[in-house]
Computed example of a mutant assay.
Amino acid sequence: MTVASTLLRAAGGWVSPGGPTGKLTILTYHRVPSGVDPLLSNDQVDAAKFAKHMAAIADCFNVLPLPQALNHLDQGTLPSRALSITFDDGYQDNYTTALPILKRHGLKATFFVCSGYLNNGLMFNDVILESLRACQAKELDLSWLGLGLLPVYDLAAKRQASQKILDTVKYLPFNEREHACDRLWQIASPSEARPQLMMTDEQIRDLAAQGMTIGGHTHTHPILSRVDLDSARQDIALNRRLLAGLIGHEPTIFAYPNGRPVRDYGHEHVKLLKELGYQSAVSTAWGVAMKHGDRFQLPRFSPWDDDPKRLVMRLFKNAMNGQNPLVATGAS
């Protein structure tokens, strides 16, 4: 252990103590591509960056599987500098790229999986990205989306276009969103086969067999606040049932799609998860989990720093300042 890491661990013990006042940092990752993808955002975490993250985290934090960490949090026995690692959606590179890095450092993680896209599916955001990646045109007429003519003549233009399209369709009703993405594919890349980016059933089984936690994340990734409660119930219940068939037991932890409290889910969805048998859930509100917090609205943090020391310092800052995360409130 270096002098720097010793000092960081000492600082971390002060800002993220254990015991009854313990704080749990929960990290969020999505895709972990093998190399930098020019069409993904600047804050992407590729394999090299993820490896740096895990080395720094293993050195400076006490990493616990999320279910175990939550048990310690409830009992007031959390170690100092406690941290859990999570992934959303079910991308195949979580298995092929991230898993070997996790294992190298002896780390466990939780994978929140959308069952409807396993095997040969493609999530709507990736339909947008991959259709533009394959597009050979210089511009696309997307007047039907209210976007007019969008330039797509190079990678920078395609990245800007993908963000504009995503912002336009993300909050559409599910059927409209799927129809818009399918139409975009037919316009931008009609002769291209869709790539396989999501995990297979067998990979999910193997993650569970290797001690990783599998959590629910809906079947089709609807923004829960944009669908009626009955549809949300059916989608969440189907996801839980299908994942149980793969791993042999029902998942106990859930991640809200998109995950922003109030905007993406409400207190009625918190109550719904309890009715369906879940024991806890995570949002994407930034903050740190504490004993007094809502177990169905656990905050998380999304790291993207290239420099490992800066990453650790940002995580400590979040632990110090993130004690009152945003939550969706309502009658109990």
Rank of each mutant, 00 (worst) to 15 (best):
R9E: 10
P17W: 10
P17C: 02
T21D: 15
L24H: 01
T25W: 03
H30R: 09
R31P: 00
R31S: 06
S34P: 03
S34E: 15
V36A: 12
L39A: 01
L40K: 04
D43A: 08
Q44A: 00
A48R: 15
A51W: 08
A51F: 06
H53E: 08
A55L: 13
A56Y: 04
D59M: 05
Q68Y: 07
A69H: 05
L70M: 13
L73N: 08
L73I: 13
G76K: 05
T77H: 02
L78I: 12
R81H: 12
A82C: 03
A82L: 08
S84Q: 04
T86K: 02
F87N: 00
D88W: 05
D89H: 04
Q92T: 13
T96L: 04
T96I: 07
T97W: 04
A98M: 09
H105A: 08
H105V: 06
A109S: 00
T110L: 10
F111T: 12
V113G: 11
S115G: 12
L118C: 10
L122W: 10
D126I: 06
V127H: 01
V127E: 07
L129I: 13
L132C: 04
L132D: 04
E139M: 10
D141M: 08
L149N: 15
Q160W: 07
S162Y: 00
S162D: 07
Q163V: 06
Q163R: 10
Q163A: 09
K164T: 13
I165R: 01
L166Q: 13
V169E: 02
K170L: 12
E178S: 08
R183G: 04
R183Y: 10
L184W: 10
S191Y: 12
S191D: 15
Q196I: 07
E202I: 06
A208K: 11
Q210M: 11
M212E: 15
I214A: 05
T218C: 09
H219F: 08
T220Y: 01
I223K: 06
I223M: 05
S225M: 00
D228I: 01
D228A: 00
L229G: 01
D230E: 14
S231H: 11
A232V: 01
Q234G: 05
I236S: 00
I236E: 00
N239I: 05
N239W: 08
F254A: 02
N258T: 14
V262S: 14
H267E: 13
E268C: 10
H269M: 02
L272N: 00
L272S: 03
L273G: 04
K274V: 08
G277N: 09
S283W: 07
W286A: 15
G287N: 06
A289K: 02
M290Q: 15
R295P: 02
R300F: 09
R300A: 13
W304C: 12
D306H: 10
V312M: 03
R314T: 09
F316S: 01
K317P: 02
K317N: 14
M320D: 11
N321F: 11
G322S: 10
G322T: 10
Q323C: 15
Q323I: 14
P325S: 14
L326A: 14
T329V: 11
A331F: 09
